[in-house]
C-alpha cells in the first residue's frame, strides 16, 4: 500500500493562562482526499497535540459549532474536504471579530444577546389558538423558509466588515431572523421589532457588502433579508414624517 500524502496545517493558538500572545503552530499530518478539515483537526488532537481546542458536534454542517477562519475565509471545518485544500499549507484561525476563549473557541455571547433585541422569535397574535395547530399554505411557508435555515454558525458575523467596525451592529444572522419572523403569517411581532429594525445599529449599519451571503453554508442570504427591511424601514420613516402622530 502506498504511503498517504501529508499536508501542513498551521493553527493560530492562544491559551488564557499562557503568558504570551497568540502564536502559530504548524502540524504535518497524513490526509485522505475525502477527509474533512474537522477530521484533520481531530487527528492533530488525538495524535499530535492533545491541548488543541476547538468546538464541533454534528460533523455534517448542521449544528453550526465548528466555524473557523480557513485561509482567511469563514468556513465550517466539517464542510471542507482536505482534497480541496491540498497541497496546503492550510491556515486555520478562530472566527474573526469575536473574543477568543482558547485556540479556535470563540465567545458567541454578543450574538446570543442580540437575538432577543432583534426579536428573533415568534410572537403569537391575539387570534392564535393555544390548542389548535396554526396551518400555513406552501406560499406562506415560502415567504420565510429561506431565512429560517440559519444554524447560528456565525460565519456571517466574521465575514461582515461592518460588524468588525461597529460591534453594536445587530448583524447579518440576527437581522435575517428578524425578517424571517416578520414574514411569518403566524407572527404578530412586526411592531415590536420596528425599533430595532429602524435603529442605526439595526438595518442601517449595513452597507450591502454582501460577503455574509457568500459565506453562509445554509443559503440564508442575510444581505437580501436586510435590504428588504431597509425598504420597509425607509417607507415607515417617510410615513412617520408625513403623518405626525403615526408612531409613538
Amino acid at each position: 500500500m502506498s504511503e498517504r500524502p501529508t499536508i501542513v496545517i498551521e493553527v493560530r493558538r492562544w491559551h488564557p493562562d499562557a503568558e504570551q500572545p497568540p502564536w502559530w503552530q504548524a502540524f504535518e499530518l497524513p490526509y485522505r482526499e475525502d477527509q474533512s478539515l474537522l477530521e484533520a483537526l481531530q487527528h492533530i488532537k488525538d495524535e499530535l497535540d492533545g491541548s488543541l481546542t476547538f468546538r464541533w458536534s454534528c460533523r455534517m454542517a448542521i449544528c453550526g459549532s465548528c466555524g473557523c477562519m480557513v485561509d482567511g475565509r469563514p468556513e465550517l471545518s466539517c464542510h471542507l474536504l482536505m482534497g480541496d485544500l491540498a497541497p496546503g499549507p492550510v491556515r486555520v484561525e478562530p472566527l474573526a471579530h469575536f473574543p477568543v476563549i482558547r485556540d479556535l473557541v470563540i465567545d458567541q455571547q454578543d450574538v446570543l444577546d442580540k437575538l432577543p433585541v432583534a426579536g428573533a422569535y415568534l410572537v403569537p397574535g391575539d387570534d392564535t389558538s393555544a390548542t389548535e395547530p396554526s396551518r400555513q399554505t406552501p406560499a406562506q411557508v415560502a415567504e420565510y423558509a429561506q431565512f429560517a435555515q440559519c444554524i447560528n454558525c456565525l460565519l456571517c458575523y466574521s465575514a461582515c466588515p461592518q460588524y468588525g467596525l461597529k460591534p453594536d451592529f445587530l448583524g447579518p444572522a440576527a437581522l435575517a431572523l428578524m425578517a424571517r419572523h416578520d414574514a411569518d403569517s403566524r407572527d404578530a411581532g412586526q411592531a415590536e421589532r420596528r425599533e430595532a429594525r429602524d435603529a442605526t445599529s439595526g438595518v442601517w449599519d449595513c452597507t450591502l457588502v454582501g460577503h455574509c451571503t457568500e459565506v453562509c453554508p445554509q443559503g440564508v442570504d442575510p444581505a437580501r433579508a436586510i435590504n428588504r427591511n431597509k425598504g420597509a424601514s425607509a417607507r415607515d420613516y417617510l410615513l412617520d414624517l408625513l403623518l405626525p402622530g403615526r408612531r409613538r
Binding site: 430595532a196 429602524d198 442605526t200 439595526g202 442601517w204 431597509k230
Partner: peptide
C-alpha cells in the same frame, strides 16, 4: 445598547 432611530432613510 441604545437603539437610536437612524436618519439614514432619506
Amino acid at each position: 445598547r441604545r437603539l437610536r432611530r437612524s436618519h439614514e432613510p432619506p
